[in-house]
Write a protein that binds this DNA or RNA. Structure first.
Lengths: 219, 219
DNA sequence: GTTCTGCATGGCGAAATACACCATTTGCAT
DNA sequence: ATGCAAATGGTGTATTTCGCCATGCAGAAC
């Protein structure tokens, strides 16, 4: 078959029809790319991938039925060579990390231009990793904070740090935590500092956000 | 002028380029509708509306610079006959009510099909009110429940308070919010106080917790 | 045994933030 | 007009943050 007939096959998973249309339009503007299917839910997505065996799956991270990251894991289990690119409205590097660890090759913010979309798609198709620039910054900060991405970013934390991280996630203030652990607020403060360095966040508010999010995932 | 030359003029305000493309594509599929402009921020939107005097403005409710509802109010102040249709990723009738009170004629969920999009546009252009079916249900349930906006504690919040609540939920610190909204930290501070009173929480940490949780339910 | 390293602890001072109370302005409704 | 709600932001005090540094205490390395 010639290049004419063998376009790259892409499927789009997003629960907003209007967003699917936007993505589709930009992709179809490239002569060598083709959108061979769309779906709004995880189950539809799995069927679609099985049936059409696409080169790339574009996945919105905030799918209502489960979430996009869970879908990434399920697709990986299908044992295909299909590449995956996550599209997200969140800037947090938290999700980028999880998406990449789950098996996606790329993480793109919805705020990015359409040129970036195409760039991300082509990068991922080559088998390389793509992450939106501002999200990359946060990831880099994380790496500089200590070590190369391990299995779990929380793994780098000491027991005491993790304990405090969980208390933050439960909504306790610094003074409340200090009182609870019978240590001074200075101590909790220092731990908060170290947590921020290790987790690559720059403000206390972000640390709170990350801690609370992390609580919701693990119960 | 004939129908050929006098297409209905529509502008699109959304900070996701990909979403703008999707909306544009569907609108242009209608022979009598034309997209005469796009913008990502409030200020750009105001300029665009002044310059092109469109028949309809399509507004994403979750604009980063301020929010969609504030933009609706600002456009209404321009004293044009321009109709406004809010597009939202949130299903809460909470936002629909605010949007309509602010001066929008329609409220459409992003989960709706593209057929609904066109239907909503045409309804609003006729000067009638359009609200997405499932959101309508919630609105009706509210009215039947006698008390306006009964069980949702967020209902007692003003538009501004809700906006700040959402920014807190997104992980922004007080100063970051102040900078983003171009107001003093004192103002944000006062809003935080009022939020705590209205939501019945006693510490700032709890407010953060509540805001972040609330984001994850509806974001 | 000494040295090195990692962890928990916490003190210090400047800057930022929270907190409670209050004043002004604007818009809206009666 | 009068009254009310909303948004803005100022004041003063208390608390927290933030970066830096110091101590004590383990266990591992030499």
């Amino acid at each position: 078959m010639t290049d004419q007939t063998a376009k790259t096959k892409i499927v789009i998973i997003d629960d907003h029809p209007m967003m699917r249309d936007g993505l589709t339009m930009r992709i179809l503007s490239q002569s060598d790319l083709d959108v061979c299917g769309q779906a709004a839910t995880q189950d539809e997505a799995i069927e679609l991938v099985k049936d059409s065996n696409p080169d790339l799956v574009l996945i919105d991270i905030s799918l209502k039925s489960g979430n996009g990251i869970e879908l990434v894991k399920r697709i990986r289990l299908l044992n295909t060579t299909t590449k995956m690119l996550i599209v997200s409205a969140f800037q947090e590097s938290l999700y980028a990390e999880r998406a990449l660890r789950a098996g996606a090759l790329g993480y793109l913010n919805k705020q990015e231009t359409n040129e970036k979309l195409i760039e991300a798609i082509r990068t991922v198709l080559r088998g390389e990793t793509f992450v939106s620039p501002d999200t990359t910054q946060r990831l880099v900060a994380q790496v500089l904070g200590k070590k190369p991405l391990a299995n779990d970013p929380l793994a780098v934390l000491t027991d005491r740090e993790l304990e405090i991280f969980r208390l933050i996630g439960a909504g306790f203030s610094t003074s409340a935590i200090a009182h609870q652990l019978f240590v001074s607020t200075h101590t909790v403060d220092t731990h908060r500092e170290n947590l921020k360095k290790k987790l690559g966040v720059k403000s206390g508010a972000e640390l709170n956000l990350k801690a609370i999010h992390s609580m919701l995932e693990s119960g």
